[in-house]
Design a protein around this nucleic acid. Structure first.
Lengths: 150, 150
DNA sequence: TGCTATGTAGGAATCATTCCTGTCTAGTGA
DNA sequence: TCACTAGACAGGAATGATTCCTACATAGCA
């Protein structure tokens, strides 16, 4: 979803995040895509508009935005960290072939609970569901026939 | 659960994994704990019995065992990879304070589905649920009062 | 018992991420 | 409008988990 700079500024203010050109560009890049980019992806995207941008700043900014709750980190296996500008409660569908991550919004999945006898004194704050499978393209490419990867 | 070497040998044979001293030791260490150790943890544990053991062998062996389906990899955030000797379908409860991972076995959680309109041609093979919260110890230490960490 | 494919040890290489340091700037108060 | 200061930025170095490379060792079969 395309965001204008005023909307970005408003969100930053609401979350008490100091506004800079770099941060706005990084956040905009993330909010405009549903593709869960990596820090490196964002760095390359933003560097086109701001050639002085440092990789370091991308990592630092993602850390700040994450702590402020403007951004969410998504992880699959121990692969490179991916980021998500969608911070509403949702879940993910991950292709074992090409690695793409698709958002799943479903109210039913938002209300799972652990049998209290298993919770063992834990105070549960939230949960996340990850579905694994093969996307249509990977099935066509014959990957879907493979056994499930570790 | 303590395993004797015959049981280990049987499992290896069943999964067509070549048996070596190193592999047996690594698998035994993993099967005997419920603590989801890292590769480094396993390396240190096994090195006590086999001082020549190489870190490399631990990684390689974990890869082999994982591909054979004798071992499962568990990941939390983009932290170090953790391993699980329990390969039955189950889910995890993760403490945001100390990072401990507790197994959750619950049949209800094993039968989740995505609304088909959201599956978008995906062929779903499985899913995993991760609960986040604070364990009893971390709550006592006051960590539970903290806002949820990114 | 010997052969061969495969596993192992150890060191070097990789690469995402973090740390360090000097410079710059957003936001505030005068 | 200006100066100040905490916090942000850039760039390079460091870190550390994991993988790659290679020579040697060994499991499993004939």
């Amino acid at each position: 979803m395309k965001l204008d700079s005023q909307e970005i500024e408003a969100r930053f203010r609401r979350h008490a995040v100091r506004m800079t050109r770099q941060r706005a560009a990084i956040y905009a890049a993330l909010a405009e895509t549903t593709s869960h980019p990596t820090a490196e992806d964002l760095y390359r995207t933003v560097k086109r508009q701001q050639p002085m941008m440092s990789r370091n700043t991308v990592y630092y900014t993602l850390g700040v935005l994450r702590q402020a709750g403007l951004v969410q980190e998504v992880n699959v296996g121990h692969e490179v960290a991916r980021f998500d500008g969608n911070v509403t409660v949702h879940h993910h569908l991950i292709c074992l072939g090409c690695g793409q991550i698709v958002d799943v919004m479903d109210d039913g999945l938002n209300h799972l609970a652990i049998p209290s006898r298993q919770a063992g004194g834990f105070h549960v704050l939230g949960h996340r569901v990850e579905f694994h499978g093969y996307c249509a393209d990977c099935q066509q490419a014959g990957l879907g026939a493979m056994e499930r990867r570790g």
